[in-house]
Design a protein around this nucleic acid. Structure first.
Length: 492
RNA sequence: GGCGGCGUAGCCAAGAGGCCCAAGGCGACGGUUUGCAAAACCGUUAUUCGCCGGUUCGAAUCCGGCCGCCGCCUCCA
């Protein structure tokens, strides 16, 4: 079995075969950094994080590039309107680059908490102005673009394949056009490659066509080419960017290079709130910082970052996710159950007796792994993959109930939690926060002294004393669990 | 108006012609265990997949119609 992914270009699930054996180049449209990341961003970047993680699980050598848009993204269509970053900077009375830096850091902070593996390269649009000017120059030379009044536009009529990704044709778009057309354009569907800057525009660069700044679509073409080559294996992004953004990327890149730009287009669906798309423009978004702290009117409590991650993985990346507090609450409960089980397994790994590994368990674990891989190979069916994690939880709990379970058996269970839940899904951590690694052993000894005292009291039917000990420990955040022939403890 | 998609239990959600009288999670209820609790475990919770027709030996899955919802066509992950 190999990985199959849904390719938006062919509208089919296809077997994934990279251009170069064993190597994968993947480019994902990153955020425009003019505000804190919200749950919509989380769905996007968690989805692609799982793709990258799974490719690495399959032993591919992956180069993951995800841009940071800090210039060129306008508030209106690609030709009118203000630059998003510049506008936000004006409001916050900061230099646009300071604002972009602030939100870039915020973004990485949130993604780290969601356990998204950092991209290998996070190129900034503003750091690639020369390359963007270079691409515009090539397009002009090849006759795919024209300069007008200090700006440069892509001549859509020259590129026959325009519309192949989003499945629309130029005539239809002309008929349905709702955008005010710039007088400089030959054709309403032409899009800006380079925009002339007015003198008071802060972010501007000199160019052969006068001072200006790049069009939004340009950066992704240029940066993916620079770091991954003219033809890349996978390009990821949100469904809402399929048109015009990705369509324009294809036009620019293929016109300039004369070769296929992207082999597999992977698009994820949107997060909605009350059935409406969550977005900055609708102002109905919940930022990740709000979700983690609970500081939002739609939230009844704070949520662990990985519970948010689990909510996202609970549905398919190509399905829309309608956000609700109830759904997040459920994900938090489920996530907590997995976490507690993993912690318990790891704790018992050290204390369990030595002995042979149960063959029956080995077989069951193998089946679980196969089921997990089959699900992931089928266009990253994380929903089913998660269900496998819960099957593993149930199996682990049964083993935990049994004092005869050996160290080796627990070890195998832990390996599966690590490989599947950790490496692939990113919901199982390598280490959970403890009192401090050095103190952990001491802590365990101390609590065990108290457990012994309590069990002594229980044996003597002195329940008042037993309950007092339990209550006191509970107040300190330590929960005791009485099993048939032993008592274990965990932190709350 | 054009293009694309969705509608599965109280909630989230997988399944895409027979393995489905439909995974998994949350919640609820009953039980086991326990001195009591907590946790865990076991069981119950959709004879049915928006509605109506059709194709087929067989449909949640394919086709047609209807109803409802969403995305894109303007910035948005």
């Amino acid at each position: 079995m190999t990985l199959n992914v849904y390719n938006s270009l062919t509208r089919r699930k296809e077997e994934f075969k990279p251009l170069k054996k064993g190597k994968v180049g993947i480019y994902v449209c990153g955020p425009t950094v003019y505000g804190h990341a919200h749950l919509g961003h989380a769905k996007s970047y968690v989805s692609f994080d799982v793709l990258v993680r799974y490719l690495r699980y399959l032993d591919y050598d992956v180069t993951y590039v995800q841009n940071i848009t800090d210039v060129g993204h306008l508030t209106d269509d690609a030709d009118q309107g203000e630059d998003k970053v510049a506008e936000a900077a004006k409001k916050e009375k900061k230099h646009p680059m300071a604002l972009a830096e602030y939100y870039t850091r915020s973004y990485f902070e949130d993604m780290d908490r969601l356990n998204c593996v950092r991209p290998d390269i996070s190129p900034r649009a503003s750091g690639h102005i020369l390359e963007q000017i270079g691409l515009v120059t090539i397009l002009l030379k090849k006759g795919y673009a024209y300069a007008a009044n200090g700006s440069v536009y892509f001549d859509v009529s020259k590129f026959k394949d325009y519309g192949k990704l989003s499945g629309r044709n130029v005539e239809e778009m002309l008929a349905g056009a709702r955008v005010e057309v710039s007088p400089d354009k030959k054709n309403p569907v032409d899009f800006a490659l380079w925009k002339k800057a007015e003198p008071n525009h802060i972010m501007q660069w000199p160019s052969p066509w006068g001072p200006g700044y790049p069009g939004w679509h340009l950066e992704c073409s240029v940066m993916s080419m620079k770091y991954l080559g003219k033809t890349i294996d996978i390009h990821g992004g949100g469904l809402e960017n399929q048109f015009p953004h990705h369509e324009c990327e294809i036009a620019q890149s293929e016109a300039a290079n004369g070769v296929q730009f992207v082999r597999y287009w992977v698009h994820h669906n949107m997060v909605t709130v009350d059935g409406q798309k969550m977005g900055k423009s609708l102002n109905n978004f919940i930022t990740l910082k709000q979700a983690f702290s609970g500081a939002h009117e739609k939230l009844t409590r704070s949520y662990e970052p990985l519970a948010v991650r689990q909510l996202i993985l609970n549905s398919h990346y190509r399905s829309p996710l309608d956000f609700s507090d109830a759904a997040l609450f459920a994900a938090q409960s489920g996530y907590g159950k997995i976490t507690e089980t993993v912690k318990a397994v790891r704790k018992r790994m050290d204390t369990a007796k030595e002995g042979p590994i149960d063959e029956n368990i080995t077989g069951q674990l193998k089946q679980l792994r196969e089921k997990f891989e089959a699900a992931m190979n089928d266009d990253l069916n994380t929903s089913v993959a998660l269900s496998v994690m819960f099957e593993l939880v149930r199996l682990a709990q049964k083993l935990l109930e049994d004092s005869r379970t050996t160290q080796g058996t627990f070890n195998l269970v832990d390996v599966l939690f690590d490989r599947l839940g950790g490496d692939c899904l990113g919901i199982v951590k390598e280490e959970y926060q403890q009192i401090g690694a050095a103190d952990e052993e001491l802590m365990d000894k101390l609590v065990n002294v108290l457990i012994e005292q309590r069990n002594e009291a229980r044996k003597n039917r002195d329940f008042a004393k037993a309950d007092e000990l339990r209550t006191k420990l509970d107040e300190m955040g330590i929960v005791l669990e009485d099993k048939p022939d032993m008592t274990t403890w965990r932190t709350k």
